[in-house]
Computed example of a mutant assay.
Amino acid sequence: MASTRPAMLPGDQPVVDVLDRATGARRGEADELLALHRDVSGAEPVVGAGRIIGFGQYEYRYDSGHGGIAPELAFATGPSRHTIYLATGFADLWPDLLAGLGPHRATRACLHLTRLAAVDRDVIRTLLEHTLAERRKG
């Protein structure tokens, strides 16, 4: 069986350095995402992989035996988009929420948003709350 190793090694990089990769109006949106993730998780942010801002941590294990430790909630922001890391398969789990979100792109575990201003913040909060509940039920 594979040993448990952090999927996102926390570093000592300041959160503000990562947030500052977003510019213009997107920079304020990054601050909003930070506050929202902190509020939902109840945890303080930690930068991992040089670009991902994570909150809390959980242990995961696949049927294959591979596992590790990852943040309970996380996001990354940059000059062209925000990426919010959600429960694997979230688009299939909660399609009704995504229908009311606004412009976005969904992949297996990532929600990509060009502008936070164009989406429903209550839907984002609910997606984060659902993801946290999924990860904590173990």
Rank of each mutant, 00 (worst) to 15 (best):
P95E: 14
P95Y: 13
P95D: 13
P95L: 09
P95N: 13
P95R: 10
D96E: 15
D96C: 03
D96N: 14
D96I: 01
D96L: 08
D96Q: 15
D96M: 07
D96H: 13
L97N: 08
L97G: 08
L97E: 15
L98H: 08
L98P: 04
L98R: 09
L98I: 07
L98G: 05
L98Q: 09
L98E: 12
L98W: 11
A99F: 13
G100T: 08
G100P: 11
G100M: 08
G100S: 12
G100W: 09
G100A: 11
G100I: 05
L101H: 05
L101V: 04
L101M: 08
L101K: 02
L101Q: 05
G102K: 02
G102L: 04
G102T: 10
P103E: 12
P103R: 09
P103D: 14
P103W: 08
P103Q: 11
H104P: 08
H104E: 14
H104C: 10
H104T: 09
H104Y: 12
H104W: 10
R105D: 13
R105Q: 15
R105A: 15
A106D: 09
A106S: 13
A106L: 06
T107P: 07
T107D: 09
T107F: 05
T107I: 01
T107C: 03
T107L: 02
T107A: 13
T107E: 07
R108I: 07
R108E: 13
R108P: 02
R108L: 12
R108C: 01
A109W: 01
A109R: 10
C110P: 05
C110F: 00
C110R: 06
C110L: 03
C110D: 06
C110I: 01
C110M: 07
L111G: 00
L111M: 07
H112L: 11
H112V: 00
H112C: 00
H112A: 02
H112F: 03
L113Q: 03
L113H: 06
L113D: 07
L113G: 04
L113M: 08
T114I: 04
T114G: 11
T114E: 15
T114Q: 10
T114F: 01
T114L: 03
T114N: 07
R115S: 15
R115C: 07
R115D: 15
R115F: 09
R115T: 09
L116K: 00
L116V: 00
L116C: 01
A117N: 07
A117F: 02
A117T: 11
A117M: 04
A118V: 00
A118Q: 11
A118N: 10
A118L: 06
V119M: 04
V119I: 07
V119W: 02
V119G: 02
V119S: 04
V119A: 05
D120E: 13
D120R: 10
R121D: 10
R121T: 08
R121P: 09
R121M: 08
R121C: 01
D122C: 00
D122S: 15
D122Y: 01
D122L: 06
D122A: 13
D122T: 12
D122H: 09
V123H: 06
V123W: 03
V123S: 08
V123G: 05
V123I: 14
I124Y: 05
I124W: 03
I124N: 01
I124C: 02
I124T: 02
I124A: 02
I124R: 00
R125V: 02
R125A: 13
R125G: 09
R125F: 06
R125C: 04
R125D: 11
R125P: 12
T126I: 02
T126F: 01
T126S: 10
T126N: 07
T126Q: 14
T126W: 03
